[in-house]
């Protein structure tokens, strides 16, 4: 009895057991495949997320130059006193001599500064009542060459940065757009005479010529 049942019933039970085990194994296999796919997807999504977030944060915190104004200006040389449509001027007719780049503690003649803009300089002007520490901060913030810094009456904002044909009104020395403006426009593609000097010109005195 026990022997025969072991023979026939045992074979059936064995096949059932094998099927059961095979199904269990297949289920296990599906599970591990799902886990693997899930893990890979999670890792890829995490990497994409981190990269995406970093790029987004970089782009969204980058100071915007949307406030930059552009102007069409003339560029003749004249020894006559010039009048300008913008204040500070961003271009227009100007003196044959250019203003040497550098830091000026007093206002500079427009006719000279405009010529330096033509040579690729960025001219940073500030209200005469700007606190001294902010003036120092401006001096530290600007490159050593192809930059003019000077006070100026009647500015529309505490600090104004100008390059040839373009200008931005800034809130102060700590306005992050100053650096971006300088990087974009100092000797930038807007420069009518790239390579022309910002030294060897005038130190701020309008040369007295008859002509």
């Amino acid at each position: 009895m026990s022997a025969s049942s072991k023979g026939k019933g045992g074979a059936r039970a064995g096949r059932a057991k094998v099927d059961e085990l095979r199904q269990a194994q297949q289920a296990k296999e599906r599970r591990s495949r799902l886990i693997l796919i899930g893990a890979v997807t999670t890792v890829v999504a995490l990497i994409a997320g981190v990269v995406g977030f970093t790029v987004w944060r970089d782009v969204s915190t980058r100071p915007s130059l949307d406030a930059v104004k552009k102007f069409d200006v003339t560029r003749e040389h004249t020894t006559e006193p010039a009048t300008y449509e913008q204040s500070p001027p961003v271009g227009g007719d100007h003196h044959p001599a250019w203003l040497n780049c550098g830091v000026y503690p007093q206002p500079v003649p427009d006719e000279l500064a405009v010529h330096s803009l033509e040579h690729g300089a960025v001219w940073v002007t500030y209200r005469p009542d700007l606190p001294a520490d902010q003036v120092t901060a401006l001096e530290d913030a600007i490159p050593d060459t192809y930059m003019v810094l000077s006070p100026r009456e009647g500015l529309p904002s505490p600090v104004v940065a100008s390059a040839w044909g373009t200008q931005i009104e800034l809130t102060g020395a700590d306005d992050p757009r100053l650096e971006v403006f300088i990087k974009e426009f100092r000797q930038g593609p807007n420069t009518p005479e790239p390579g022309a000097a910002c030294t060897g010109g005038s130190d701020g005195e309008l040369p007295t010529t008859t002509g």
């Binding site: 690729g120 650096e179 300088i182 990087k183 974009e184 100092r186 000797q187 930038g188 593609p189």
Partner: peptide
Amino acid sequence: VQWGLPQTGS
């Protein structure tokens, strides 16, 4: 200019 980079560094 050819490299498309500004004359002013960061």
